[in-house]
Write a protein that binds this DNA or RNA. Structure first.
Lengths: 362, 362
DNA sequence: CTGAAAGCGCTTACAG
DNA sequence: CTGAAAGCGCTTACAG
């Protein structure tokens, strides 16, 4: 009996070009759909159908094909498949940086929603820089995603033009705007900043401070925070921008606030990690929280619950943002008419021990 | 003058099949290499060369091609490109879960090293389960990666067979073994556990406890920990396995240890996040650290530095593991003979305030 | 239910 | 330096 490479139906032909090709092919080593077809005594089309639309193949054929696949260890080449079908099954996700837990949660929400449909996430991390956002977009576009979800608004004109030219659904998220490329799902950062300022003022804060990053969402929170503070008749300062989101940076920011404005009695840090760093620094310095100084954050991360006192924070429904963004994409891909173009998921303020309680209204 | 879609050199032919094809193509909307070639008055091959090997094209031609690319917003289709070239430029990275910061750092080390060579990372997250590790492997294999890096050893026989069949370099990491598929770069987990037990015993610990996950690396650390404790003549218990790596779980584990073995005077938690949770729980319960109970972790995460007292930990050079693994892959891809098959990067114990100091040797 | 032909959008030798 | 031909490994209509 023949063994090894000698498959039924593959008698040596005397063609010449195909031979060269076959030789090159052997270099890759991996079995192709033709090899499966030959072993199963059928055609490539039937193998393809067995994989994509098994109901259209008789059970007997299907069995032979599946056995051949198993035997050869055949794994379809996704590049070839999507080239031929013009369907990549890829959803590109643009994210400032995946190392921030709330963004990771949004990505998780997308992944969970999209996986059931057999779609895959292609994650692009642009590190908060417009220049590499565009670069990243070029790289992602080369993979022909069927839709794009951006964590954050896409502001840079070149990036916007590129996205429009792609001709696929685009969902921006984590913010709201009247000027969306396509769809937006998020919440108002100015609103969140304002809500926190009112909470701190209601608890007796008279000299507030804001600490946050340089990105547009942090800027919107700062603006909302200051505006609401003024409305409440208390003062509010904006500290120098923070470079990162970690405990050390939060501690540094707190130290700076105390040095520059020693009478500050409430600080809103634009992220729970920073807030936790600030709280720990207060404890090291012997500043009573919340009596001497109140501390608040944003994101409802685990650490805001775990420290003592718990840190007052704003919950932003990060996972729901991902879920709803993905649902919008799926609807579009199904050809549904676009529903609401702007989806406001809101936020909620969670008071904890790190801020003074708001007295009940008389 | 003609405008719009009517490009030079694209006079309407009276062929019939190509017409149908052209029509379908128009559905995708995106310009192809042929469109660029037509606009630049050259051939597809020259466009391709302008992109991959610009030195082989005259400056004049290159200029015309680049202008045409710019004008049309042409972005090459990566699937088509890699199908034709049989080079995907993809390095697949298998990771138990990216949400653990030390693994994220290893991935960062890989990315940094590999990016310069124009290779891309394809990240697969298998959530510590063997079943989905194999599934994931199938999905990754369909993308035809040129090499595979696994965070952790690949133990499951089916997965090992699959990887071997791929015929590409495989680097396992974060552990050591005599039975590597190809290359390993990591450190000894039993060694790390042992070192920590000796440190705790030297500081006066008499009743040690280990808290860790159910994965093999945690099991190896537990085994090394217990063996060294026995050698030092102190007792060591292994607590029930932890389900996750977060502060709440660390707090829960500490509570359980205290309940089951109230006299425990030193706990090694197999991850800094757990250790931080345990430390905070001690503080809530009024248990003095390290006098009443010493706490130690692993991973040298930021939080182990930020809390007071600082948490004694083991630094495992997570980023270097990624870097060295990637370098090994690059060497293989260049065709270099394999260097050492097993690369031991070691670890270092960082004593901090959460454990009792080791008295100087007399 | 099954298959032959054509094509997806690129690149690889090979000639000139 | 430039290009015509062939092919990468699949799938899509279209026939039977």
């Amino acid at each position: 009996m023949d063994r090894g490479q000698s498959l039924p139906g593959r008698v040596a032909p005397d063609r010449t070009a195909p031979d060269r090709a076959a030789q090159r092919r052997r270099a890759s080593g991996r079995p192709r759909i033709e090899d499966v077809a030959a072993l199963a005594g059928t055609s490539a089309i039937t193998v393809s159908r067995t994989l994509r639309a098994p109901a259209k193949v008789t059970e007997a054929t299907r069995g032979r094909v599946l056995r051949a696949i198993e035997q050869l260890g055949y794994i379809p080449d996704i590049a070839a498949s999507s080239l031929a079908s013009r369907r990549t099954g890829i959803i590109a996700v643009l994210v400032p940086t995946i190392t921030i837990p709330v963004f990771a949660e949004t990505v998780q929400g997308i992944t969970d929603t999209v996986r059931a449909e057999g779609l895959q996430i292609l994650l692009g991390d642009y590190n908060y820089s417009d220049a590499s956002e565009r670069e990243l977009l070029l790289a992602l576009a080369g993979r022909r995603p069927e839709a794009i979800i951006s964590v954050g608004l896409v502001q840079e004109p070149a990036a916007r033009a590129l996205l429009r030219g792609l001709g696929v659904p685009v969902v921006e998220s984590w913010d709201l705007t009247d000027d969306a490329l396509d769809l937006v799902v998020g919440f108002s950062h100015a609103g969140a900043g304002g809500a926190m300022a009112r909470h701190l003022a209601a608890g007796g804060g008279r000299r507030l401070a804001f600490v946050g990053g340089t990105d547009r969402r942090a800027a919107a929170r700062a603006a909302g925070f200051v505006a609401a503070a003024i409305e409440c008749g208390v003062s509010a300062a904006i500290a120098l921008p923070t470079a990162a989101s970690n405990l050390a940076e939060g501690a540094r920011a707190l130290a700076q606030v105390i040095e520059q404005a020693p009478q500050t009695d409430a600080v809103f840090l634009s992220d729970d990690m920073l807030a936790a760093g600030a709280l720990l620094e207060c404890q090291r310095r012997g500043l009573a929280v919340p009596d001497r100084i109140a501390i608040a954050g944003l994101g409802n991360m685990e650490i805001s619950r775990a420290l003592s006192p718990g840190i007052t924070t704003i919950d932003v429904a990060a996972r729901a943002i991902g879920r709803r963004a993905a649902e919008a994409v799926l609807a579009r891909l199904r050809g549904d008419a676009p529903g609401a173009t702007v989806l406001d998921l809101g936020f909620s303020l969670i008071p904890r021990g790190s801020t003074r309680p708001v007295p009940a209204v008389a």
